[in-house]
Design a protein around this nucleic acid. Sequence first.
DNA 1: CGCCGTCGTGTCATAATGAGCAACGACTTC
DNA 2: GAAGTCGTTGCTCATTATGACACGACGGCG
Lengths: 271, 271
Amino acid sequence: MRHPDDDSFADDRSTPDGLLQTADRALQVLLCFDRERTEWGVTEIAEEFGFNKSIAQRLLATLAHRGFLIADADTRRYRIGPSAMAVGRAWERSGSLRTMVEPILRELSAKTGASAILAVPDNLHMRAVAAVDGSDGPLRMYPLVGELYPAHAGATSKAFYAYLPAQQRQLLFAGRPVARFTDRTVTEAGALEADFLQIRQQGYAATVGEYDSHVAAVAVLVSVRGEPYGSLSLAGPEESFDHPEQHVPLLRHAAQQIERRLTGRLRARKD
Amino acid sequence: MRHPDDDSFADDRSTPDGLLQTADRALQVLLCFDRERTEWGVTEIAEEFGFNKSIAQRLLATLAHRGFLIADADTRRYRIGPSAMAVGRAWERSGSLRTMVEPILRELSAKTGASAILAVPDNLHMRAVAAVDGSDGPLRMYPLVGELYPAHAGATSKAFYAYLPAQQRQLLFAGRPVARFTDRTVTEAGALEADFLQIRQQGYAATVGEYDSHVAAVAVLVSVRGEPYGSLSLAGPEESFDHPEQHVPLLRHAAQQIERRLTGRLRARKD
DNA sequence: CGCCGTCGTGTCATAATGAGCAACGACTTC
DNA sequence: GAAGTCGTTGCTCATTATGACACGACGGCG
């Protein structure tokens, strides 16, 4: 699905004028090492993009030379390499994620009065990577950003973990016992599965006091490039944050904005 | 410093035969958005690499077109972009870090009998990203990988956090009170600073029972591209793991191996 | 307020470079 | 053992990147 003012990008595969075809192709190739396909061979790349085999071979070799790919010596297939880690770390360090999504969170918060939080999964938890306090003042003493939420409690976590493959969801109960934070925390496997099912069906998660007592929250899944990325949530004091579900359309819209900003190509050409 | 069998890489800046110059240049440019330099302009890139301005401009525009960079509309300077996140996530998903490092850890463990752990910083903790259990059997019931260690307790953490800028080290005491895990945990700011100083002076951290009672550990800093990346540690039961310091040279050597594997370009050309 | 210096962008001729073709060798499969 | 697949490499041609130059915008300085 495309945004209206995206139409200047004629085709993903073709290189616009004024740009370097070879470099562009290399980057395209690099990006196709994604969740769906983690390994590629020379011929596969050639077919995927309609390149000649020699082009594919040289592109892959160049990417490998700079460490963006690693060539499996046995299978002669390529996987993602350590330079991907280097640029990924550069991205994290840059803090651009926060600055890119904070305007969206600010708008959410302004329209609802609640705190807005973008969180990403992290070792059976969710980590707040960007947040804006609501007009009722901060929910906590300490800053929201960096906070970890357990996978099984609260809308922020449940909106994400509900969409995990069933097998991975089992992990929530595989290790140590599921912690109880309040008397409303859901700790029983069956009940949690039922919640997840409902979340998938209605497309959002709404919880009250599951992690922090007196905090109500509503959250939706955020996907990037079609893959679950994190969750976007609104949270506020149980007393004043009325009918959180009413904000689901707003959340959905904001989630799409975030997805768009995190899916590459922005301000590539002057408009 | 180069490894003996690295000599086929004549020069970082020149593109070997059989590779694509333009793609290689684009990747070089992408990699220079690192800790030291997070923003580059067209002219700066041109000077840095000896390119013509037009080349630099097109390289940057191409990288931006695919979302690897973002152009600041006002300053016309470039920063790292969301596609860097995409490939970084692909790297994490691939689990290559573990498979690349585990042979080294296995060798460490085999030579010492202790458990070997590679950990990276994570929100004032250290996270074990790869580990091999020692011959005395596992230290814990649950797997080492994924484990979080607090920043102020244990060699694994201290070997890393000792090298943080003093200002950032203050954060350890800025938030909640420093937790005490055993009677040997160092919780006083002055004493911890003294430990950090000693660690920097001797080049390694050695602790006994600071986090887990009855566990002795020794650790060294791991740097990638000259920047602190994580720590490499050996840990074993206090009773049987004698004179952990004796293994520091071994640890140093292994840390260098890891650094080399994580600094790109492996098996780029057949040897 | 206007000048100059700097920076990013665009143009154009040139030739260097990447594209495509085809052949080879290694390996797998039947 | 033969046929097919895959990755690699040499070679030729022209597509494409290159670099010198010029333009316009911006900002700092006099």
